[in-house]
Structures are given as structure tokens and as C-alpha cells.
Design a protein around this nucleic acid. Structure first.
Length: 217
DNA sequence: CTCCCGATAT
DNA sequence: ATATCAGGAG
């Protein structure tokens, strides 16, 4: 995708949604971190359903430790990978209390040292909580970037580095969410809805199946 | 590379 | 029945 097309791509998505935000629900930065850890290979809807009561009861790492691993499992047992996620959230909370005064560090490389926190999760926290120009390449961004031809790469890290080079201001902070929402609701993995896509003319992907009868753009 | 792992859409 | 979902660790 050419430089002008990338600018136009985000200009149109920004026009439709001026201030995109994460669909994960949270009340503070610690809860955001926990929600993102829980969201691995799971839907935001499912995570929000599980965290609604949890976050009413638990707002700090100290309170999470008090709840305990088994107590946490009761809240998140409807989420995939819940055993390893519960273990990681408790371990991560203990480290925050012991080494960081119960606060979430605003540093990507420090965040990555926490159990259950990889590069993608750390980038989400940096972007959503601290406004950093980081590209958290999850399954949606990886797919949208490759499909459209904006940034073709074999690994999430390769795509992230290309996006960092190619996405211009003033879209560098918001592009992360625009791509996620676009991938979630239009440029879907199984059935991309190209017939109602606002950036289809800028995209390298050509759908094999036509728009369904009576589909509205 | 494999394992982890429930809910939902197709 | 199977693919997919805001991945990370061993």
C-alpha cells in the first residue's frame, strides 16, 4: 500500500469513529493490565462478562492477592486458558506489590518481565494507559495489515516494525484501535464484509464471495 | 514447535 | 464439527 493510501485509510476510519477506545472494561491501569492478560485468545465480550464482578471486588494488586488464585479462578473460569491466566495474574500482582509499590510501571520493557505479559500486552498497556505510539499487533492487526497490504510480515514483530515506519501522524496513537475495530467488525477472519468496507478501494484483498442479497453498504 | 482452553459464530 | 477469539511460556 502506498503512503498516500495509508493516510487515506486512517482518515476514513477516523471520520467514522473520531475517538476509538478499547472495548475492554476497566476502572484503573491495574485493572486494564489484568483485563489484557485475560484477553489472550478470548473475546472482549467474554472477558468483560467475567471481570464485571471481579473488578467491583478487586481494584488493586493487594486485593487480588487477598482473593487468591482459586478465588480468581471462580471469576474467570468461563474464559479460555483460565488456569494459566489465574496463576499469572496472582504472580504478576505479587511482583507489583513487592517491586513497584503496587503501581503499573509505564515502561514497555519492564512490563514484559511480568508473568503473562508479552510484547503485545505491554504495547496495549502503553498505548491505552499512557498514550504511547505503540502498535500492539494482535490477531486482528496482524490480519488487517497483511490482508490490505499495509504491512506484510510473517510474524507480529515484523508487522509491528513496518507499521512503526509507515503509519503517519496524526494517526500513530489511534491507528491501533482503528485497525482492531475494523478487523473485528468488518475485516473479519472467516467472512470479511468487503461490500460494506469503507476502505475496500485501497485494499489489496479481493473477496471471492460477493455481497449477500439485500446487503446494505 | 506444543500446550493452555471456554464461549461463540459459522 | 470446526474456526476463531486483543497470546505467552516452556
Amino acid at each position: 500500500m502506498k503512503k498516500d493510501a495509508i493516510f487515506e485509510f486512517f482518515r476514513r476510519l477516523a471520520e467514522d469513529n473520531p475517538s476509538p477506545e478499547t472495548e475492554l472494561e476497566f476502572g484503573n491501569t491495574y485493572q486494564l493490565l489484568v483485563a489484557v492478560v485475560l484477553s489472550a485468545q478470548s473475546t472482549d465480550v467474554g472477558v468483560n462478562k467475567a471481570t464485571r464482578e471481579l473488578f467491583q471486588q478487586v481494584k488493586t494488586p493487594a486485593e487480588m492477592i487477598e482473593l487468591g488464585e482459586e478465588g480468581l479462578k471462580e471469576h474467570i473460569k468461563t474464559i479460555g486458558l483460565f488456569n494459566s491466566k489465574a496463576k499469572n495474574v496472582i504472580a504478576l500482582s505479587e511482583i507489583l506489590v513487592r517491586d513497584f509499590g503496587g503501581e503499573v510501571p509505564a515502561d514497555r520493557d519492564v512490563l514484559t518481565t511480568l508473568p503473562g505479559v508479552g510484547r503485545k500486552t505491554a504495547n496495549v498497556v502503553m498505548n491505552c494507559a499512557f498514550g504511547a505510539e505503540t502498535f500492539a499487533v494482535d490477531t486482528h492487526i496482524f490480519r488487517v495489515a497483511n490482508r490490505t497490504g499495509m504491512a506484510k510480515g510473517k510474524t507480529p514483530l515484523a508487522v509491528e516494525k513496518l507499521l512503526d515506519k509507515r503509519v503517519p501522524q496524526p494517526f500513530r496513537v489511534g491507528s491501533h484501535h482503528w485497525m482492531i475495530l475494523h478487523g473485528r467488525y468488518i475485516c473479519k477472519a472467516r467472512t470479511p464484509e468487503c461490500w460494506r468496507c469503507p476502505v475496500a478501494d485501497l485494499c489489496a484483498f479481493k473477496p471471492k464471495t460477493p455481497a449477500p442479497k439485500g446487503a446494505q453498504a
